[in-house]
């Protein structure tokens, strides 16, 4: 039983990392006033591209980089639609989602289920001198570590730097930011690209760290969950760590339970984080908390000469 628990706890960070990366990326988007429903597609593009590159023998670093490039390309398409062409952001996001899932299906056709080396934790424990539980938590591959540092960096940049100040201003009140000399479209597009990079790394994490293969549909809704997790973490990247650990913990629990042979309602357990997020939304609404944290100009396109 204890062993099961240790194994579960040790596997949580790697399960949480893709959620965290994608959520942090979407927080950048939404703090600049852009709602991006395309994260699922961006993740799929990155996941398939990095596996294909690794299969072609280009090495893990290049595989990761090309995954990021592919995700970035899709994010750029979304950004052009949502920021420059002022397409409804929900619609533009859905297009990016479908395009990413569709094209990744084409790219990965025929290359499914082929194992790649990917990224693994260093052999042997670096933290053997610590208690087993703690060492298990700390023994992670570098991309998982990166996810947590990235979230902290996103928080710091948004809340503590001039760059973040301008980003927040664009998301809260685009006309006022424009008056203050901030190029609204540029900042929003930049936020879409920066968020796209993090979502792409999340996708590459899934295939290179998590599965070591590509399977059609392997993103399995994680990009959508990230959209909901932005609300759950109230647009704050530090709280996103907690939210990601919650979802990661539940996801990590299921394989442990299944391998232990226990008879438990697996789907009910998997449902619980969704219910928790819904419950959080309703409770936040009851106490009018969520409304305060949501960027006021979220979802609203901006053109200076439009009188509003």
């Amino acid at each position: 039983m204890m062993e099961l628990f240790t194994a579960w706890v040790g596997s949580i960070p790697a399960f949480a990392a893709p959620f965290l990366l994608a959520t942090a990326g979407l927080i950048i988007n939404e703090r600049a006033g852009v709602m991006n429903l395309g994260a699922e597609g961006v993740m799929a593009m990155a996941a398939v591209t990095s596996v294909l590159m690794e299969m072609a023998g280009h090495g893990t670093a290049l595989a990761l980089l090309s995954g990021i490039g592919a995700g970035l390309g899709l994010a750029a398409i979304f950004g052009i639609m949502a920021v420059f062409l002022r397409v409804d952001q929900v619609l533009a996001g859905l297009v990016a989602f479908a395009l990413g899932i569709g094209v990744s299906g084409f790219l990965g056709d025929g290359s499914e289920n082929q194992t790649v080396n990917g990224i693994s934790p260093p052999p042997g424990s670096d933290f053997a001198f610590l208690p087993k539980l703690l060492a298990g938590v700390l023994d992670q591959d570098w991309l998982t570590w990166f996810a947590f540092f990235a979230a902290i960096a996103v928080w710091f940049i948004i809340e503590r730097t001039d760059l973040g100040l301008r980003l927040r201003a664009v998301g809260e009140d685009a006309p006022a930011a424009d008056a203050a000399g901030v190029n609204v479209a540029l900042y929003r597009f930049g936020a879409v690209l920066a968020g796209g990079v993090l979502c792409a790394i999340a996708g590459a994490h899934l295939s290179l760290v998590g599965a070591h293969i590509w399977v059609d549909g392997m993103v399995a809704g994680r990009g959508w969950i990230a959209v909901a997790m932005v609300t759950l973490s109230r647009w704050n990247a530090l709280r996103a760590i907690a939210a990601a650990l919650l979802f990661g913990a539940i996801q990590a629990l299921v394989p442990q339970l299944l391998s232990s042979g226990m008879n438990v309602p697996v789907y009910f357990i998997q449902m619980s984080p969704y219910l928790a997020t819904l419950a959080y939304l309703l409770i936040a609404g009851l106490f009018a908390k969520g409304a305060d944290a949501q960027p006021a100009d979220l979802g609203r396109p901006y053109l200076r000469e439009e009188r509003r």
Binding site: D162, R168, A169, E172, D173, A180
Partner: peptide, 20 residues
């Protein structure tokens, strides 16, 4: 007014004037 409501007084000043 072209002020960003949820930001503080100082943040609004920094936003508009820091560079100049």
């Amino acid at each position: 007014f072209k002020l960003v409501g949820p930001l503080s007084v100082l943040e609004n000043l920094r936003l508009a004037c820091a560079r100049r």
